[in-house]
Design a protein around this nucleic acid. Sequence first.
DNA 1: CAGGGTATTGGGAGCGCTCCCAAAAGCGGT
DNA 2: ACCGCTTTTGGGAGCGCTCCCAATACCCTG
Lengths: 345, 345
Amino acid sequence: MAAARVRSGGRPTLEEVAARAGVGRGTASRVINGSPRVSDATRQAVEAAVAELGYVPNRAARALAGNRTDAIALVVPEPETRFFAEPYFSAIVRGVGAALADTEMQLLLTLVGNDRERRRLAQYLTAHRVDGVLLVAVHADDPLPELLEQLGMPCVISGARHAAETLPSVDSDNFEGARAAVEHLVSRGRRQVATITGRLEVYGAQRRLDGYRAAVSAAGLAPDERLIAPADFTEEGGAAAMRDLLARRPDLDAVFVASDVMAAGARQVLREADRRIPEDVALVGFDDSVVARHMHPALTSVRQPIEEMGRRMAQLLLDEIAGRTPGDERPSVVLPTELVVRDSS
Amino acid sequence: MAAARVRSGGRPTLEEVAARAGVGRGTASRVINGSPRVSDATRQAVEAAVAELGYVPNRAARALAGNRTDAIALVVPEPETRFFAEPYFSAIVRGVGAALADTEMQLLLTLVGNDRERRRLAQYLTAHRVDGVLLVAVHADDPLPELLEQLGMPCVISGARHAAETLPSVDSDNFEGARAAVEHLVSRGRRQVATITGRLEVYGAQRRLDGYRAAVSAAGLAPDERLIAPADFTEEGGAAAMRDLLARRPDLDAVFVASDVMAAGARQVLREADRRIPEDVALVGFDDSVVARHMHPALTSVRQPIEEMGRRMAQLLLDEIAGRTPGDERPSVVLPTELVVRDSS
DNA sequence: CAGGGTATTGGGAGCGCTCCCAAAAGCGGT
DNA sequence: ACCGCTTTTGGGAGCGCTCCCAATACCCTG
């Protein structure tokens, strides 16, 4: 007596599938992994056995033997509330999930709390062997991307870190979105168009400002640095910036705010200053978040295709993992934004 | 020549750590897994070797050998937009993440699209060997929990499915939250208090209705079924329900709405009907979402400690996995809610 | 100083799968 | 019928770790 032990309970193993199909383990493996070097008859026999036994490969064994995991990690910096909050997080997850749906890939969620954790992360990720990493909200000075790169870990980031981004990245067209928003304000007859920016270390925030500037000069308006107030993506920051603007240029008649949340802060200040929206001051936000839809008056805002961004990130990463041919560029995707006009402009 | 091959690159293995520490593989393993049966000297030697080599255990190998994965799955039904949306999803994830932070446990995110996927899920989860499952937004008739139970897979759900919930679950105190909300309305002198409910198949929605009823009768008001309008947790549903209420009881002076999103719909209808909030009709929502804070007027709402719920779910699951002693009850946690009073009431 | 523990330790035997090599089969052509 | 290929197939050798048992070291006690 030799051969495959009959296991009492538990899930069937490859060995058992092979025995049932009357073939060797190697052959069964080939069928399951879709190798072409199998005869049709054999393939069918194995597939039947798989179906009858309800066989599902053991991931751990696969990972150990094959030196891969069929898992990718989505790294979310928790302190970065801007990204963790609506609408980014769930939309990104949704998009990533959609792209992974008909794949064997699993999605690992890694929340990174503080900086110490972030530093340990690269080692952690390599040791726990994910096949690739999705990074959102990376700062220009974050060492993580380079670290992963050195470790040979495929990696895609959301939002280029600077103009000369080297990593595969997915971004929305911040410049064009901002430009269109300001153009829209101008087309409604506004002439003193101010802007409240996000943290300018964030490249996307910088691009939105660039878009604003481009639109202002394209419209032949007089650029004025006093119409530009930097903030930090928070509601309070938006409010403070609005107060500054009002003090510096009380004659402004429109504000392009680089995020809806900041726009909410700005609106509050405008209301307190008895400026009517949109009659006295038109307001346009960025993100098209829930806040925009429910603000009063409903906020005109630039929508980013966030779910699509998640999807593209995942696809890029899968390509990267599959191994791009050496000559290939590191692909960087820029998706178009859409201006959603509501009552505030 | 025998013994440990020297590996060129790659991560160090247990074997190498053991060699470096001058101990056997078994001993090294014991140290790393915190077994007490190791002498102090040995422990220190191994720990030093671990530090020097930057050793991190290989998860796949551990999983294969130890028949566990140190991973749990968070199953999110994607169609259930109510749960996927703000504030639930990110807050739950945050809480779960926090609870897992100083654990070796990984979080696997599993989005379930359609019903077919959901059906395959149990097998999938068992085959892919997670140690436990966190289920959010389970319906009373969902077969998944029972299936997992039969498969012996630890599992915690968010939101009891009915009064006699058998699975470990974490819930907010829907009854008390609703009761307090209505009591608050009554205390402000409202006498014709209506309610817009969620889908009553959802136990939590039913409990909120129960709480409403309890408060109404406690206040000595005349119960009137015409003051109760069922909806479906959507904004449109809330609007439709509000129209019904207005048609049936034009004299109502307050509405307790079982979710902020529905409240947004209701507010829209009230505005169109020229009812001032809160002067003519006071409004209270449920969830304390972003919508509530940015609605005009800002919406009084019942806050649920969602992040805490996530944390407790994870803790419960970890306990479950660690193996509760047989006599133990299936623990079910109910967390208190908090009424956040704003301008709408 | 022997005897009988008890505290530590080493390392074999897998876990279930992929990789890969050598063996077996199939196929023409002569 | 035989030879030289090309397909297809079987199964050994690990992947890195945990489990567990037997071996060794250490400690008292009488």
